[in-house]
Design a protein around this nucleic acid. Structure first.
Lengths: 349, 349
DNA sequence: ATGAAAGCGCTAACAT
DNA sequence: ATGTTAGCGCTTTCAT
């Protein structure tokens, strides 16, 4: 076993095994046209030489870098970190490596990352686009899969997201069954498509249950704890009578609402019921622990990586995948004893 | 602006600009030997052609792939996600891209990831090694920086970690000042070096304050909420008299201890004081909110990336960097009115 | 200041 | 079944 100052190449291995480079290449990529014994010998020589395939060279010649890109708002955000983990797992299992970038919800940064991905000659990318305007990717001609809700606008591309409609119905049914038929809605920013989808489903659900959608009250937050707290304060300022139920569009706002309720001297779930949406770890430790609807973050990542690999392989069915969410019952929603006969799931759309 | 079915190369740009490929290369890498006007013309042509530099080819020729690897236990863990974000930020700011891998505390997986990094011809790697036995990396001849506490064993390599000794002193002083001079210690697994460092500092601190180290009581957990809960139950089973103070080696165990206390009908901070270590987001939402010592996760990531880039650039001072931790005072530690005259920081080691 | 040419490590025809 | 050869897109001498 010789140590060289530069990493060994197939030529070194070839010399060691007494064959030509193409034979080595064949042995390495287990092609069919090779004698089983020579392959063994070559592999042994490769190991002896401490040979590691140069993926740069492979990528250059074959057009497959073995790299895939992930562009998400923020890898430090626990939800996206879970997504990244799922994507990473699937990628690794299939011999690909994951390049991770955070866009910070900034359009310019996102564009810059996308350019970097092009330069790195990634085989494809998984993207949660900042804005709805997303023509850049198409121009790029880079295989990609959309993750999240913005996919609606791009029917010709594959996408993976959580089934928001199903989740909202799940939450509404749960609330309804416990006597909360007209929850306040703590919504995210107006221009985000997830909000629209959420609200649309609420309206449909109301109509199906003979509730006048005009009576529904929304308060806007910005997906942060502070935003949730402020929104809850506005709700409280309306001096509502009786028990208050709140359905938040994400857990952070729900937690903020819980804080605001406590600060106002109100008990949760005594005076206030709060239902979250996301399933962040912190929800398990709040007092009371947050009842919430969990998005399948890791599965989302896995499936998006899988879809991307499919797209790259040329299996071109631009699939739209919606993964179901799950209700995690903890302690933040009171049971006022409601319409017990209600079926838990309403007909699909 | 022509559209080709294959991405444009420097040759295309050269043709468009009416120069040779070497001139284009020079313009792109702003070398000195080039006329300012030709450079401008070339750059314009590049833009017109929609040219994106092929980093694979660059890496192949120059030996710099522009890729750096990050191998951590779990990207889905909020702490490591923060670290990843810091590393990613620094990398991006310096034109590098980050390849992320989770080892799941598995030695074999870690080795596999390291091999993948070699194959990808990353310029270097940031690693939190699973075990102390870490000779693999040296054999690899890959520039690397260690992140976390295991660096102790590798004096000849650069490392970045949080200053555990400082953090422990900070916590002990804080506890002491509030009347808790002999806290129970909720420790992580025995074979981890972080535990050793933690305990050593406690002993030193005790000696400095005339407390017999033999009186200190440790309970072992496994860094999880469940582990913390079980450990706390064992502490409670000892039927201790009076107020109980617990100093946990990480927040998850601290949160678990809090749960166990509540389940035992004890009030925190009324009957039990709990001090955590890490600064996970969930700590802010527990009831009571967890007082803890925050590790500078993002800075850790940033600095490790910076160190790595230094190592790669050949600035070979195998630096050992310890970043200070910060106490976040929330509501889980009671003030029993202790030794008020104690200085907040003890002499450095 | 610019061009010509060699070559990084590999794969994929094309020979044999 | 194995070897020969021609590039992939780029950087980098070496000429001019």
């Amino acid at each position: 076993m010789r140590r060289l100052n530069r990493p060994p190449t197939i030529v070194d291995v070839a010399r060691l095994a007494g064959v030509s480079k193409s034979t080595v290449a064949r042995a390495l990529s287990d092609g069919p046209d090779i004698n089983e014994e020579t392959r063994k010998a070559v592999l042994a020589a490769a190991r002896a030489a401490g040979y590691e395939r140069n993926r740069l060279a492979v990528g250059m010649r074959s057009g497959r870098s073995g790299l895939i890109g992930l562009v998400i708002p923020d890898i430090a955000n626990p939800f996206w970190a879970e997504v990244a983990r799922g994507a990473q797992d699937h990628a690794v299992e299939h011999g690909a490596s994951l390049l991770v970038f955070s866009s910070d919800w900034d359009h310019g940064l996102e564009a810059r990352h996308l350019r970097t991905l092009r330069q790195a000659r990634v085989d494809g990318a998984i993207v949660n686009p900042v804005a709805d305007n997303f023509d850049d990717l198409h121009r790029f001609g880079l295989p990609f899969v959309l993750i999240g809700s913005s996919a609606e606008h791009y029917p010709e591309s594959s996408s993976v997201g959580s089934d928001i409609a199903q989740a909202v119905r799940l939450g509404l049914d749960y609330l309804h069954a416990r006597g909360h038929s007209r929850p306040y809605l703590l919504m995210g920013p107006r221009w985000r498509i997830a909000r629209t989808r959420f609200l649309r489903t609420v309206v449909e659900h109301n109509i199906a249950h003979d509730i006048d959608p005009a009576t529904l009250i929304t308060e806007d937050g910005d997906y942060t704890v502070e935003g949730g707290r402020a929104a809850m304060q506005r709700i409280l300022a309306r001096n509502p009578a009786g028990h208050i139920a709140v359905f938040a569009q994400n857990d952070l706002m729900a937690l903020g609402a819980m804080l605001a309720a406590r600060e106002a001297g109100l008990s949760c779930p005594g005076d206030v019921s709060i239902l979250g949406f996301d399933g962040v770890p912190a929800g398990a430790f709040s007092a009371p622990a947050l009842t919430t609807i969990e998005k399948p973050a890791r599965a989302l990542g896995r499936r998006s990586a899988q879809s991307l690999l499919d797209v790259i392989a040329g299996h071109t069915e631009p699939g739209r995948i919606y993964l179901p969410c799950k209700l995690i019952e903890r302690g933040s929603v009171a049971n006022l004893g409601g319409v017990a006969t209600l079926p838990l799931t309403v007909a699909a759309e």
